[in-house]
Nucleic acid binder design. Structure first.
Lengths: 195, 195
DNA sequence: TTAAAAAATGAATCATTATTCATATTAGAA
DNA sequence: TTCTAATATGAATAATGATTCATTTTTTAA
């Protein structure tokens, strides 16, 4: 199914992205998504099992793009501390350039236990782990303090970026520009963990 | 209304806390809350305008407690950097001791735009601002670097703690104990911002 | 060109639940 | 104790919207 007509599959995902971002998952009607995609309600059920499935698929698709992009950008830097700087900048840029996706990842996907507890979110852990590995690399190269626990540090760093994102997603006009925000956040994170 | 029978009002809030935490706001039935509270469905509508109103009230109540507690604890320290350490410890302890509340604040309340965009969340901003003021105090006393923007730093620090909380709320058994986690997080935050 | 298969349609179904309200119970005043 | 107002009850209502499926349209391949 997923391979028969990828184009339409994507069209539905894109429509859903808009509608979920605007209304929130539970308040979004399947018929609205269909309308936004310019197809009939029933057609959605040819491509997706049910409404939940749209959200999950949407997330998988978008997250894969984010992940690929981030890996590529990171690999351009060799210094682990520079990689952290880069991570912050790329992450916040992504949020700014894709408000709808950001809002869904931010708000909708975290939503109920249904999604976060039951659906084991591999892609998200992979993303988090990019940070973890940078920190470990930094420790191996003697740039990062040995007593830093990468499992905690990666979450702290991601959380810092993420809270900044939430702030942007939820406020009308960003108060700080991305360069400033990313410089500040990576700045004190790096200062905090370096030797 | 709110003052007539505060006891029952609280009973409903407590029941809702349990049910929302378990099922998520949208999947929680008003009748389940009523059952958990040991009252009839209709009684809920004597104390609350509608389902949304329960979530909002719940949040206001709980957040006020959290806020009062945090203010008290913080005021016991005089050194701003110690205050930050204390903040982290108290915050994470709260999460650990109140899983249900944590889950709701964490997951449910951030949920749809409905709550986060339309309902202006004063209590949350007040909480965030506790951190902001500690940082400013640190700058005034010459302990924190002048180039740190408190508006960004407070979000980063809160975000770091919050992401750690999410991890706990969503995973069965905590991998790190609170003392370790809070020491690590406040540790590199303080290192990151201090002169 | 034509027939079968695949894809798309959208009106109808059907379950689900928030909310209401006529009725019953309880508490407090007289 | 009795009456009245305040509370509480829970069955009935009524809207909602996800999902199905009989029918139509489009595509494919012979």
């Amino acid at each position: 199914m997923r391979h028969k007509n990828y184009e339409k599959y994507r069209k539905i995902i894109d429509a859903a992205t808009k509608v979920f971002a605007k209304k929130g998952f539970y308040n979004a009607k399947v018929s609205e998504i269909a309308q936004e995609a310019g197809i009939a309600d029933g057609t959605i059920y040819i491509y997706f099992k049910h409404k939940d499935d749209i959200l999950i698929s949407l997330f998988e698709e978008k997250m894969q793009e984010v992940l690929d992009n981030m890996k590529k950008q990171i690999s351009l830097e060799s210094d682990p501390l520079k990689k952290i700087e880069k991570f912050a900048l790329v992450h916040l840029k992504l949020i700014q350039d894709n408000k709808d996706i950001a809002e869904i990842i931010q708000v909708e996907l975290r939503q109920s236990s249904k999604f976060m507890k039951n659906y084991h979110n591999t892609k998200f852990f992979e993303y988090l782990d990019l940070i973890g590995r940078i920190i470990q690399e930094g420790q191996e190269k003697g740039l990062v303090r040995e007593d830093i626990l990468p499992g905690i540090a990666k979450r702290a760093f991601f959380g810092a970026l993420d809270e900044m994102s939430r702030f942007w997603v939820l406020s009308k006009k960003p108060k700080y520009d991305i360069e400033t925000a990313s410089r500040q956040i990576s700045g004190f994170f790096i200062n905090g963990i370096k030797k």
